[in-house]
Design a protein around this nucleic acid. Structure first.
Lengths: 210, 210
DNA sequence: GTCTATAATGTGATAGAC
DNA sequence: GTCTATCACATTATAGAC
């Protein structure tokens, strides 16, 4: 068996495990189902990853960075503050359209407070080459000082922005039940519109018109 | 054994089951753990509820109504539109402070798309004596027509409001990791402040000053 | 590396005494 | 109604052939 094929098997396992863990969480996932999805034998999972725990940690480690970093990199550019907010939101919603199950997965698993999972998440942020929250704080203070933005707490505004991006994906099932469009296509449109509506909503609220 | 004591045992079971299911979800919960928490024998769980499934459905049925109805009842009062928004937010945040795990629980379980759970959620809404989303739509249109509020889609605004209330509870673990106050007390303060900040943020965004 | 077969354990559920 | 003891099965994990 060549090296190339070994990588291929390991990759197949990780992709299958990602899909199953994302859909069912650690507790709901079954090694057999992951093996089936990867079209291999169950014993091979243990050959490569020794245990369900270790396989899960590998998956979590690869998914953790997706929840924030790429999105907030735009804060390091030289766009205007309002353009940055708009770009963060558009990028974030686009990211979540590709990984709609990611937020619920990360938050469910983190809520179990397992030591190892929290450590992985912490390492993920320590390994970033910039601190999004700190950067955001400074940029915001700058705009407040210049009189472009109302005096608002950076943590409150930061949470507002990500709430408005993430929640529609986490809350989709319940929103559908309480009377949102039932077809997938209509819900997609609703999400698509948010790329325009959310920046408008936020900037409306904080911008000082001169 | 008197009727009163029977009710007491059933109640003990439901309370214990609520706590464990809320914390660990259906898949992560163990009947043994629920029995321990209720200080009874595991066999007694089955005597009262026959199966884990049925016990879970009983718990879910009792929790489902808490996620929305009481909060939006204020829409039926004769307060002004902006006061109603403020009251919805304050009431909702207060509700979530008492049940911080409720949103993640409901959304995790709904995301599994089990027939029976979705049915329960649907029935919960059908049993309400008013339709919050419809009511909200009409009230908003009214204000738009009167020129008090900018022209904004009611679904977008509705989701904005509940996003800003719910997300800080769902996302608490990750927010702590990315650099929010680490002590519980400070996070509580952050949440407490949102009862003032979120209404301001929303009304700022949609109100037309005359 | 990959498979089949099987061990080892965990867990929901039941039988039956009291 | 409540308990102890136990079953039946699902699931993780390993042994060993190829």
């Amino acid at each position: 068996m060549t090296l190339k094929e070994k990588i291929k098997t390991e990759e197949k396992i990780i992709l299958a495990a990602e899909e199953i863990f994302l859909k069912k969480g650690f507790d709901g996932a079954r090694m057999q189902e992951i093996a089936n999805k990867a079209s291999i034998n169950k014993a091979l999972l243990h050959y490569y990853y020794r245990s369900k725990d270790k396989l899960f940690l590998a998956v979590f480690r690869s998914l953790a960075p997706k929840i924030f970093p790429p999105v907030f990199r735009v804060l390091t550019t030289d766009l205007s503050f309002f353009e940055k907010i708009e770009q963060v939101i558009i990028n974030y919603i686009n990211l979540l359209k590709v990984n709609p199950r990611l937020p619920l997965f990360i938050m469910s698993e983190l809520s179990k407070k397992s030591e190892s999972i929290i450590e992985i998440m912490q390492e993920t942020f320590e390994n970033m080459d910039f601190n999004p929250l700190q950067l955001f704080k400074e940029e915001l203070q700058n705009e407040i000082d210049k009189g472009n933005v109302i005096n608002i707490d950076y943590q409150q505004l930061f949470v507002n922005i990500i709430s408005l991006c993430i929640f529609p994906f986490v809350g989709k099932p319940i929103l559908k039940i309480i009377g949102f469009e039932n077809s997938e296509k209509e819900y997609d449109e609703f999400i698509e519109n948010r790329k325009r509506e959310v920046p408008k909503f936020i900037i409306n609220s904080i911008k000082i018109s001169k």
